[in-house]
Design a protein around this nucleic acid. Structure first.
Length: 299
DNA sequence: ACGCCCGCCTGTAAGC
DNA sequence: TGCTTACAGGCGGGCG
């Protein structure tokens, strides 16, 4: 399941591969992938003819900025892939739902068997919007807005642990302001954007904290350790181009697997010896999902 | 405010 | 062997 490191890997590759390209045609095979739009036709019309200016990311969302100021937002859900191919003749994988063809040949394919992911265009100014903005005065003409304001659909997201650097003291204050299990909090996209089941387990192991510790029970040292673990674990996973597990779907822009699964300390290691203390890694089920941890190293 | 469940989906794998 | 069932979980919504 693509989380922040996998999406960041895609972002880096996309900025090299598609920035400056112009969209010639868009084909939508499964309308569910563009469900925020009234129709596939509507989505296509907003994307065709546009050029790609830059590629950003917020949490697990890719933000592909277009030359008219709108943004193509992509979320991969559980099983989504974004694949760059040089020729339209390359065989199309099953569940290819959207194909973006560029003028200079080659295409970008959106593949998603489980259709939990989606694509949508944000901030496209219709004639009515333009009129409204003109009436509202000068504020709409300012060049670059922060992402959360520019894309109202993502305004609910919390801080991005890679993009939004903060002091550990501030993080500790945020932890104390909440009351709940650490794992649920890490995975709450309104608290921190981009951490899912896999990386929350790895982060908690790296910080030596149990998934069910309460966020307002941490000492200053523990809060600092947790903040460091978040930043360092994600950075390390990005260096390794993300995690691809045997039963999972993650592939980078070129269809290659990531490398970080070899570094996992707890995730998907039930019954295997802890790499630090040799005790068996435990799996517990909470709220329908698995948590992997070491009962000895995490307190 | 928080925990927990559901529905949305399909591929894989375990169980009978 | 072949069918059925469970499981995987991101996210939004609902409910207690």
């Amino acid at each position: 399941m693509p989380e922040l490191p996998e999406v960041e890997t895609l972002r880096q590759d996309l900025s090299k591969e598609v920035v400056g390209r112009k969209v010639k045609a868009v084909a939508v095979g499964n309308g569910r992938s563009v469900r925020r739009h009234p129709s596939a036709k509507h989505f296509r019309a907003l994307l065709e003819g546009r050029s790609i200016k830059s590629v950003g990311r917020l949490g697990k969302y890719l933000l592909i900025t277009l030359d008219n100021g709108s943004t193509l937002v992509v979320h991969l859900g559980m099983s989504g892939q974004l694949l760059r191919v040089k020729s339209a003749k390359e065989p199309k994988p099953k569940h290819t739902h959207v194909v973006i063809t560029f003028t200079q040949s080659g295409e970008l394919r959106y593949v998603d068997p489980r259709t939990f992911g989606e694509m949508f265009i944000s901030g496209s100014t219709t004639a009515a919007d333009a009129e409204k903005a003109a009436g509202n005065g000068a504020s709409s003409t300012t060049a670059v807005l922060p992402v959360r304001e520019a894309i109202p659909e993502l305004s609910h997201l919390g801080f991005d642990p890679v993009e939004d650097v903060m002091s550990w003291e501030r993080f500790a204050i945020m932890m104390r302001a909440r009351h709940g299990g650490l794992k649920a909090l890490l995975m709450d996209q309104q608290f921190a954007a981009g951490i899912g089941n896999l990386y929350s387990d790895e982060i908690l192991f790296a910080s030596g904290l149990r998934y069910d510790r309460l966020s307002d029970s941490l000492s200053a040292t523990e809060a600092r350790r947790l903040y460091r673990a978040i930043v360092e674990t994600l950075a390390e996973a990005i260096k390794h181009r993300g995690s691809s597990l045997a039963d999972e779907q993650y592939r980078d822009l070129f269809g290659e697997v990531g490398d970080y699964q070899g570094q996992h300390q707890v995730y998907d290691r039930e019954g295997l010896p802890c790499r630090r203390c040799r005790n068996s890694i435990v799996r517990s089920k909470t709220g329908g999902r698995s948590t992997f941890y070491c009962e000895h190293c995490q307190v």
